[in-house]
Design a protein around this nucleic acid. Sequence first.
RNA 1: UGGGGUGUCGUCAAGCGGUAAGACACAAGCCUUUGGAGCUUGCAUUCGGAGGUUCGAAUCCUCCCACCCCAGCCA
Length: 571
Amino acid sequence: MAHENDDSKPAKANGTETEASSHFIKEIIEKEVAENKNDGRVHTRFPPEPNGFLHIGHAKAICVNYGLAEEFGGKYNLRFDDTNPAKEETAYVEAIMRDIRWLGFDWEDRLFYASDYFDQLYEFAIRLTKDGKAYVDDLTADEIREYRGTLTAPGKDSPYRNRSIAENLDLFERMKAGEFPDGSRVLRAKIDMAAPNLNMRDPVMYRILHAEHHRTGNKWCIYPMYDWAHGQSDSIEGITHSLCDISFEDHRPLYDWFIDQLGIHHPRQIEFARLNIGYTVLSKRRLIQLVKEGFVSGWDDPRMPTLSGLRRRGYTPEAIRTFCDRIGVAKRESMVDIALLEYCLREDLNIRARRMMAVLDPLKVIIDNYPEGQVEQFEAINNPEDESAGTRMIPFSREIYIEREDFLENPPKKFFRLAPGQEVRLKHAYYITCARVVKDENGRIVELHCTYDPESRGGGTPDGRRVKGTLHWVSAAHARDAEVRLYDRLFTRENPLEDEDFKANFNAGSLTAIRGCKVEPALADAQPGEFFQFLRQGYFCVDSVDTTENKPVFNRTVSLKDTWAKIAGKQ
RNA sequence: UGGGGUGUCGUCAAGCGGUAAGACACAAGCCUUUGGAGCUUGCAUUCGGAGGUUCGAAUCCUCCCACCCCAGCCA
């Protein structure tokens, strides 16, 4: 009873399966769990700063942090690292939560903010001060830099380094009370100005910032620095493994130092390499420039590597997750080929997208021997990879549109499409042969006259003759107009940052909007977010922003692999 | 010239002293009513380099080379 497809196409991943690839962090956790460290608990967190939208590089971090917790039956938190009121906004908080949920992760009731801990952090700071391990410094920012020394020369102690504990306590209290202007003083950890690791040269813990915070309002005018806030926040939440970017590797001694001085729960920080992908940039700082300077329409522009951009473009969370699983986790810096992301996408879309016919660049074809006024309905399979997707009816008539590039007056070898005297199959319909080409005064082809073989109805003939080419088409009288947007890489250089101004490498041709496309009637009711495969073209989704009642806009998510383009390219 | 990292196929990436996984890409072929999908096959005598230890090294030791990160009151 087994259907052909059932045994010939087993267990091919549907994109949501996670390849259980191991990596160094997993090994560390396995070992610790086996030793019953932290009572065998695994608790991770993803700590975004709400100063921009999440991009696919963050998706990797989320998948690593959250994926590991899931794998070990642990928990994971979402914690906004909102220690710098100057850059952070509530709008970003919301966008970030939406994107993480879309990816398929649920932090349940474990949503936190570093700002939740401002009081606790302040108390911790007083403790360190009382222990003589922190002091208020009156040096200016410039002076602090000078006193810090250089990569090769040790720093020197600030003249304020040895204030009495009482004075430090008093000054710190008054810093908090708002007695001093921005930048006039800081609280610093007293560690070692000669430490070879610059992070240990009395790092700043608090700075004065009279700024309104998106959550605490005007309660505070001193704000903790990342190094002071992060580890303690991890500790307070009972995090066991604090997984972060490799660039924090030399902050780890400081991370450990603060926690050890305080004697509180000690999470383990482990660093792994961030994701890089060619022809784009994965940095909030740079992406925000593209947004603010109008290179793109917004954070969710379909060309953006942001999760909201990818979503609008038609990427599925499953594809992104599979991608994150496949790129692995290691410490070496790398540049992942976008082809892998696209492969994961096509793999997922192939089994899920309903097939439709859409002609992007229409060329009219008149079938001379087809009865005028006659309309036939052909039943078309919606998805050969998924029988449950069912079928739909497609109208056929005497005048149709085919893709302009599917006809060549003087075809090269191996061109299996339409050409004078050459026969092709119209998908789901008939075989047609090109009889005549009509051009305008400029020599541009205006329309084609063809004849059809009534015997070929449905796509085959009694004589079983071979027809190599199959074209997509749309009945002229029944077609609907649509706009289609094609996207190309965001930048023209694989590593746009190799130039002084990365924006100079912006790909001006990254967006092509095509109006006057002809799509089959079934597409008329497509709703924003719906996705399809346009036969022989690629995967497309209905744009969720610019689509209006009578004017559907389709985004090309990714093209289909194009073997002919490869062959043609070689000729 | 200080400290911290990293160097295995074009791109990712396993390998944890016993004689180079896998994936993408690429190539060839099969199949095909999407030149899609699928299937088959091929693709590192070699692991940044040079020495050394060992019966045996990508894995251990030594030295060297290259690249990345750190001198924010950003995260």
